[in-house]
């Protein structure tokens, strides 16, 4: 930890430059980039969702390059076990077995970005390890505890294929600050660029355009705390936040309706207290990025879906169609809950 004070205005300039450079790498995804920037300065873990080849890995590599520090990636498979994250074994040149640190602890505390690809292909034992890793940023191995103070977990869920997958338990989902959807741009001009502009064909070259280590990852925790201490809420906004929270738990009380849905049977449990705390945390970062030191409702709106939707437990009959109902429900909550 650094002891020197944080100059938030300078850091805001760095953050906006970081965001600008990411937007040059990822065409037509300003909202996704903004949410990733918010996650970086909220120090929250992120669940990514998107089709194959839309740029999730490119986005993560660009973020990791901008943050600096170590980057590790692991692929979720059905035979992956928790030990595979902590160590790996092999037979050395001398024929003797060797045990080396795994991807989680290979770089020690320098690990800044840990990308878990297709997390739902991993077994629940791996999810359990990840749960502690995200909550405490520590892991036990080789008779000691490794601290990973600057680590951020980015995980990707495969939503297309269902065979040999293990859905994340709600407790693990709740540890993620946001679930961000990464979608290909829809504007025709941007699609033409992605298809024919050779700049986008070489992902590594594209990522190299991001200034490496432009955000000192060892200072990000201090900056995040400074943001949370500086950006203030107000009693009216506090009430609004509580109303939004309650509307996810008792939507009928707030006049939330969805066509063809029995709203009384829709929700099993709404957002958790940790979830709404993370919502407020992310909203403060959004206010800071917008140059304000006070929260307004729009800050909450910017991050509400990504911070809350993945925490909602729907009734089984609706859970299978989460993708169909989650966004309309969250949109309706924002429409119906009033604030000045």
């Amino acid at each position: 930890m650094h002891s020197e004070p944080v100059d938030l205005s300078t850091w805001r300039a760095h953050a906006l430059e970081f965001e600008r450079q990411l937007n040059t790498v990822l065409v037509g995804m300003p909202r996704t980039v903004r949410l990733m920037t918010i996650a970086v300065f909220s120090r929250g873990h992120v669940l990514l969702e998107g089709d194959v080849g839309v740029g999730k890995t490119t986005l993560l590599k660009a973020v990791a390059r901008g943050i600096g520090g170590a980057y590790q990636r692991i692929e979720g498979t059905v035979d992956l076990m928790p030990g595979d994250l902590v160590y790996h074994t092999y037979v050395g040149d001398d024929g003797r077995p060797r045990v080396e640190p795994g991807p989680l602890i290979a770089q020690g505390s320098e690990l800044a970005v840990f990308f878990f690809n297709e997390i739902n292909r991993a077994r629940p034992q791996v999810h359990a390890l990840l749960l502690r890793l995200m909550a405490e940023r520590t892991v036990s191995a080789f008779n000691r505890e490794y601290r990973l103070p600057w680590m951020q977990v980015f995980a990707d869920r495969n939503r297309v294929e269902r065979e040999e997958t293990f859905e994340l338990p709600s407790a693990a989902r709740d540890r993620f600050l946001m679930e961000i959807s990464v979608e290909a741009p829809s504007a025709r001009e941007q699609l033409r660029g992605l298809m024919f502009d050779t700049r986008f064909h070489d992902a590594d070259a594209l990522i190299s355009s991001v200034e490496p280590g432009m955000l000192d990852h060892t200072r990000l925790n201090d900056v995040a705390e400074a943001i949370q201490a500086t950006v203030q809420s107000s009693p009216v906004l506090d009430d609004y936040g509580v109303d939004l929270w309650l509307a996810t738990r008792q939507p009928a009380d707030y006049g939330v309706r969805l066509s063809d849905v029995d709203i009384d049977q829709f929700i099993l449990s709404g957002a958790s207290p940790r979830g709404v705390a993370m919502l407020a945390r992310a909203a403060r970062v959004q206010a800071w990025l917008e140059g304000r030191d006070r929260l307004v409702p729009e800050d909450m709106h910017t991050v509400f879906f990504e911070a809350i939707a993945h925490r909602l437990c729907l009734s089984p009959v609706y859970e299978t169609q989460r993708a169909l109902y989650a966004r309309p429900f969250v949109t309706e909550v924002l429409r119906q809950v009033a604030s000045p």
């Binding site: 709106h301 429409r335 809950v337 009033a338 604030s339």
Partner: peptide, 20 residues
Amino acid sequence: AFRALHGACNETAGATVFAS
């Protein structure tokens, strides 16, 4: 007075109207 204005806007729109 501001709440009255917001309430009328919300009622007219059938949803919450924010500055955005």
